[in-house]
Amino acid sequence: MAASIDEPAAIAATAVAATPGRRMWLATWSQTEFKIGLVLFLLLVGTAFIYPLLSDIDPTKLSVRERFLPPVFLEGGTWAHPLGTDQLGRDLFVRSLVGLQNALMISVAVVVLMFAFGATVGLVAGYRGGWIDTILMRLTDAQLSIPLIILAIIILTVSRPTPFSVIVVLALAGWPVYARVTRSVTLAERRREYVRGAKILGASDSRIMWLLIAPNILPPIAFVAVLDIARMMIFEAILGFIGIGIQPPTPTFGTIIADGRKYLINAWWIATMPGGFLFLTLLSVNLMGAALERARNRLLRGTI
């Protein structure tokens, strides 16, 4: 039912006395999807960071005798290597866990970088307008028109792929989206009365931007950035798969799957099992992200 000023007070009085961030958090937490995602995520990440410490299996150790061991649920599999081993006898479970560590650290770093840089530029462009804004808009237009992955591939093939350069390249390719979103929210926020009120009080532009507008508009954008962690994990994996991501022997999902692809017919688990692992991780992040996104939509609509 559309709320209008004219509805009985009983209907209109639904606003709770809490900050937007808190209301959004409450709306997120009330969704089952979020809890499912969070439990799955904690489980996977906990295992990824704890199991390799406890286990004495080295993810890069070769073992000729243990090549092509199938996963535990197939005939010939053992609990010593629950997901089986690859063409060089390396344990796929531990390799996947270390791959998950790397993927997660890289994508979180990328998203933090993209967010920090994009949000700053977007805030300044949206608030000040003028030439900064024009340049930003043309830049993001151009950036949107060329697939992020092409850009990343071009930069990485012509430079040397290290974890650092992968992070920088993905962040470079992805920040304009954040700039664009922040800019458009800032444009709307700038027209709100409280900004005019602060100007009339004599507040400086930087005070208005950083102390008034930023705390209001950035939390919802930051929450939804969770979805980009998953996206960046996929990109990192694609780069590794093509062979221009983090280089072996460091295990990453992309390189493991690329290796396994060569033995797809005889030892299908090498490519599929780590991918399944990646899928579960992405699913957990995306479920949390979807719940956050919904909560944000409700916040923007004013129904929470």
């Binding site: 900050t19 937007p20 961030g21 709100r192 009365e193 409280y194 005019r196 009120g197 602060a198 009339i200 009080l201 004599g202 507040a203 400086s204 005070r207 008034l212 705390p215 209001n216």
Partner: peptide
């Protein structure tokens, strides 16, 4: 100048004591 819209004229994330103090801080 006192503005029209009582729902939008205050910074939504600041407790009102700080909103009032902001005038002097500026």
């Amino acid at each position: 100048l006192l503005l029209q819209d009582p729902f939008n004229c205050l910074p939504p994330n600041l407790p009102i004591g700080r909103s009032v103090a902001m005038s002097l801080q500026i």
